[in-house]
Amino acid sequence: MPIIVNLDVMLAVRKMRSKDLAEKIGITPVNLSILKSGKAKAIRFSTLEAICRELNCQPADILEFSSEE
């Protein structure tokens, strides 16, 4: 997918564990792992909003477009 999820980078910057973030935004660690690994096909605005709120960042900090396959 040309959309790269940089969630792990943001987690490292904010020094937060995946498990904690999953708990705070109300999704399962498995789903967060799917999102982090780039296997997810889509992301709900509500999930994106919750992640941005918890990590205090912008959607562009998490999602990136790359033309390379």
Binding site: L32, I43, R44
Partner: peptide, 8 residues
């Protein structure tokens, strides 16, 4: 269905 299941 797959798309729906992989929507986080």
């Amino acid at each position: 269905k797959e798309e729906n299941e992989l929507t986080i």
